[in-house]
Structures are given as structure tokens and as C-alpha cells.
């Protein structure tokens, strides 16, 4: 088991809402905002805003994580965005709001 998989939930929580660089197996590298770490699989879930306003979501599987480095801390607006990403009604509401505000 890797160091990353051996961490406790409280340790994983400290990565939430942080921008990180993840070094994975076979030299793959991923960057994004940490949405969560699944406490069962240690999979780390990242959000990466795209230019078209969409979000790219990637997950690096716990067994493939070699190193996680914190690059930045999310501001309130980003935290809010991350918190509501997987709530369907919320997303629709935000999209409508964005449309109205143009």
C-alpha cells in the first residue's frame, strides 16, 4: 500500500479545496482542484475549469497516486463552485443565473 493510501480521512480532508499537482503511475501528471478523496479507494477527484465554462473532472486512482503537491488554496468563489458541482438542481440554477446576468 502506498503512502497516499495509508493516510487517514482527516489527512485527506486537508487536501480538499486545494489546487494540487498529482504525480501518478507511468509518469502521468494531473493538475486541478481537489473535490474529494474517496476514503474507500483513496481515489483523488480533481476539477479543472475549461475555457468553454465547463468543468473537466478527473480522478486518479488511489493505487496509482505517487505524490500529491499542494499549489494553491481555493478562494470563496471557487470553494462554492466545487461544493455545488454534483448537485443537479444547483447546477441548473447557477446556469440560469449566469444566463440572466449574461
Amino acid at each position: 500500500m502506498s503512502e497516499w493510501q495509508k493516510k487517514t480521512p482527516l489527512e485527506w480532508l486537508t487536501y480538499m479545496n486545494k489546487e494540487v499537482t498529482v504525480l501518478a503511475a507511468e509518469k502521468h501528471q494531473y493538475q486541478g482542484w481537489v473535490l474529494t478523496v474517496d476514503p474507500v479507494s483513496a481515489n483523488i477527484l480533481l476539477a479543472h475549469p475549461l475555457e468553454n465554462g465547463k468543468m473537466s473532472i478527473s480522478a486518479v486512482l488511489g493505487h496509482a497516486v505517487q505524490d500529491v503537491e499542494i499549489v494553491a488554496e481555493a478562494g470563496d468563489e471557487m470553494k462554492e463552485k466545487l461544493a455545488h458541482l454534483f448537485m443537479p438542481e444547483e447546477r441548473q440554477r447557477q446556469r440560469t443565473k449566469a444566463l440572466i446576468q449574461g
Binding site: T8, P9, L10, W12, L13, M16, L35, T36, V37, D38, P39, V40, N43, L45, I57, A59, L85, F86, M87, P88
Partner: peptide, 21 residues
């Protein structure tokens, strides 16, 4: 208890992501 609460928060968000996917 704090650890269990943390585990729940982390897991919940992950399961929601699977639903969204």
C-alpha cells in the same frame, strides 16, 4: 467522531460524482 465525520463528507462527495458520471 471527527474522523468518522470526515470520512462521511469525503465519501458522500465521491458517490455524488459517480452519479453525475
Amino acid at each position: 467522531e471527527r474522523e468518522q465525520e470526515g470520512r462521511v463528507a469525503l465519501r458522500k462527495r465521491y458517490l455524488r460524482s459517480l452519479l453525475a458520471m
